[in-house]
Design a protein around this nucleic acid. Structure first.
Length: 333
DNA sequence: AAATTATGCAACCGCGCGTGC
DNA sequence: GGCACGCGCGGTTGCATAATT
């Protein structure tokens, strides 16, 4: 966590502050105020640059600094403020007494950003993400939630639990298929670019013939017998997007009869209002951006990179979807 | 138990803005 | 107007620690 102390070319110390230095700085500022930061280190007898002193004071030594975990209220406030202000950390910090911009920035980058991503929201726009990565994220969420649900199911009822897992996997696969299919014609990433409709054969091949009747319950959690707290914790990520999203009957697939067939076949899983809306794939996001993006997990970069290099077949997609379904299971704690 | 990888966060860097000369 | 300076901000780095393999 600490850097090895070092000196720059002017001989001034860099790196972590020692307790002695902290004391000198605190004593000096409490007695004299900081005044000119540039002049301060000399006056205080510190072998540091003024900037280093200022940072140490504002981010760590200031007496009004609140340390420790961010409360739920603070967390919500940060998210809301970030939605309005963007990465204006100082502006955000001004609304959270005792918190520094640096602390908030770190908290955002290490926790909140991930949280929003997991919720399928773009951390920059705070809107539903509309790319395939988001889709995979949703897929993993669904599978993870299903596994958690299973763990809270009566252990005597293993068959029930296994069926639930299986159904959730099926739904996740269906979602992934549908979302991949609904990308616009102009999207170079569209894996179904050469197809006019989602082939029944592929749907059947990927999904098999499992009964999806439990999936409605999986989403609303009303009949599964676990506590409301668990529901809140594990299903909050399935909230419907706040803005109208492109469903299968929008975009390039307007009036797509295949979606209606799917609705009939699976009890209207694609259009029932109590199920989460599908997020649409983003045509503006290039393959290169995705592959280079730090948001990508390594495994997915490779998979997606491979994907872009070849014309995907239906068999390929079946394998792809199966692989990621399995990965999602294995990542659940 | 050791090696490897991921995570969290303090501290640094560089840019841009405001101010004074 | 142009320059120098001081400061604040956002982005990034580096490393200790935790988690995983």
């Amino acid at each position: 966590m600490m850097r090895t102390p070092s000196n720059d070319e002017s001989g001034l110390k860099k790196g972590p502050w020692s307790p002695e230095e902290d004391k000198i700085l605190m004593d000096f500022i409490q007695k004299h105020g900081h005044g000119s930061w540039r002049a301060l280190p000399k006056l205080a007898g510190l072998n540091r640059c003024g900037k280093s002193c200022r940072l140490r004071w504002t981010n760590y030594l200031r007496p009004d600094i609140k340390r420790g975990k961010f409360s739920d209220e603070e967390e919500k406030l940060i998210i809301n403020l970030h939605a309005v202000l963007g990465n204006k950390w100082a502006a955000i910090a001004s609304h959270l007494p005792g918190r520094t911009d640096n602390e908030i920035k770190n908290f955002w980058n290490t926790h909140l950003k991930k949280k929003l991503l997991q919720m399928g929201l773009d951390p920059m726009t705070h809107r539903p993400r509309t790319d395939h990565l988001s889709l995979l994220s949703n897929l993993q969420q669904i599978l993870a939630a299903a596994k958690i649900v299973s763990s809270f199911t009566n252990p005597c009822d293993i068959n029930n639990a296994l069926r639930l897992q299986s159904d959730a996997t099926q739904l996740a696969k269906l979602q992934l298929l549908q979302n991949m299919f609904q990308v616009s014609n102009s999207d170079p990433l569209n894996p179904f670019g050469s197809l006019n409709s989602l082939p029944d054969a592929l749907v059947n091949d990927v999904l098999g013939l499992n009964n999806l009747s439990n999936l409605q319950n999986l989403y609303d959690g009303t009949s599964l017998g676990f506590s409301s707290q668990i529901q809140a914790n594990n299903f909050q990520n399935f909230e419907a997007p706040q803005e109208p999203t492109q469903h299968m009957n929008g975009g390039r697939n307007s009036g797509c009869k295949e979606s209606e067939k799917l609705d009939e076949q699976f009890g209207s899983t694609t259009s029932n209002s109590s199920l989460p809306n599908l997020v649409c794939a983003s045509p503006e996001r290039s393959a290169e951006k995705m592959v280079n993006s730090k948001e990508c997990s390594t495994s997915f970069e490779l998979t997606w990179g491979d994907l872009m290099d070849e014309e995907p077949t239906e068999t390929y997609w079946k394998g792809f979807i199966d692989q990621h379904s399995n990965q999602a299971w294995s990542t659940v704690p």
